[in-house]
């Protein structure tokens, strides 16, 4: 690792101030992704601001639902009784991610800030627009590596089928975020210009011409907490993760489902997919179709077909065009207990 300055802060205000003061400064939370990327020389911070002492780890009931502090560990959230009771989808999604050790380290805020697992992003000798939005000149050395997209025309088995651009076809790797986008979460952030709330579906962004930007946070902003509105999905929730081994692997793709069901009819439904786009992918057209319909395989298939509109494969990941609708149907069957 490159040498860097290390500061420990105990208040959000100090954290924001520290990260705003000088460029090249990063918040350090659980570190499970940042330290990894630093060891690989993908990110070379000049300063780290250790925010692990911030008092932001509370999980509490609010008037409108649940509030989860940004510094709450993934394992603490997954095992929290309120979470398991009211938003079991979130608990399931968290437990589908990483390992018990990493979930003890990783925080809710850090999980949202995860970078993609695209191998071209991870290897500074390979072309990547996300890591190197501007071609590094000879004097800039290898810190950024070549720009371009290695995954287009390369190995893209894990990559996006929705919303990609000719600059980047990477996917967001989080499981937790799939549950949060499905459950209509909102993100509370604090920054140099004050506090604001971002709908979860607008927190992450599509790559477009700025693949280096994963999300809509402004410089210096710190994630404070995530709010989850009350819902009626607890009895029919399911997180399906399809991966190359049974655990401790990133998703080929995943489906998060929450259904409010009465006597075989879908009153309301939330559907989102992971491993298919640069952001957690909400399936609004499929949701709209399923609302008010009986929970039948035929309806699930039709919803899956609707969900796939606009999907595009890039070669190795063409199989996702088949796997995605299959997985949607499988997840819906399991969530509605009609398998």
């Amino acid at each position: 690792m490159n040498p860097f300055q290390f500061t420990r802060v105990t208040t959000p205000k100090a954290a924001i101030s520290a990260v705003t003061k000088e460029s090249g400064t990063y918040f350090l939370a659980g570190g499970t992704n940042l330290i990894d990327l630093m060891k690989r020389e993908v990110i070379l911070p000049e300063r780290l601001v250790d925010i692990n002492r911030l008092p932001l780890a509370t999980i509490e009931k609010t008037a409108t639902g649940l509030r989860i502090g940004a510094m709450a560990k993934n394992a603490a959230v997954a095992d929290n009784e309120l979470v398991k009771k009211h938003v079991p989808l979130l608990s399931q999604a968290l437990n589908a991610g990483a390992s018990a050790q990493l979930r003890n380290m990783a925080t809710v805020g850090g999980n949202m800030m995860q970078r993609t697992r695209c191998p071209y992003f991870y290897d500074p000798s390979m072309p990547c627009n996300k890591r190197s939005p501007v071609q590094a000149g000879p004097d800039k050395g290898r810190a950024n590596g070549p720009s371009g997209c290695g995954a287009i025309g390369g190995h893209n088995r894990m990559h996006a089928i929705f919303g990609a651009s000719n600059k980047c076809i990477a996917v967001h790797p989080s499981d937790m975020c799939i549950a949060l986008v499905a459950l209509d979460a909102t993100v509370n952030v604090s920054g140099p210009k004050g506090d604001r709330t971002i709908p979860f579906s607008e927190f992450h962004r599509l790559p477009g011409d700025l693949p280096q930007k994963d999300n809509t946070l402004l410089p210096g902003e710190l994630i404070m907490s995530v709010d989850l509105p009350t819902n009626r999905f607890a009895d029919n929730s399911y997180y399906l993760k399809v991966r190359d081994r049974a655990s401790y692997a990133f998703a080929l793709l995943s489906v998060g489902v929450g259904i409010d069901m009465k006597r075989g009819t879908i009153q309301d439904v939330r559907l989102a997919m992971g491993g298919v786009a640069h952001k957690p992918w909400r399936l609004t057209a499929a949701e709209a179709f399923l609302k008010g319909k009986p929970a039948t395989e035929a309806n699930f298939k039709q919803a899956a077909t609707l969900a796939m509109q606009g999907a595009k494969g890039y070669g190795e990941n063409d199989f996702k065009l088949t796997l995605a609708p299959n997985a949607i149907v499988d997840a819906l069957k399991t969530a509605t207990k009609t398998a």
């Binding site: 290390f6 570190g31 250790d50 390992s99 050790q101 990493l102 003890n104």
Partner: peptide
């Protein structure tokens, strides 16, 4: 890189990957 678990230790009772834990934290 937090991918194998051989470095697992307990920090304040919780199992973690010590390879991704900066000692300063």
């Amino acid at each position: 890189h937090g991918q194998c678990g051989a470095c697992t230790v307990h920090v304040d009772g919780a199992r973690v990957n010590s390879c991704l834990t900066l000692a300063m934290t």
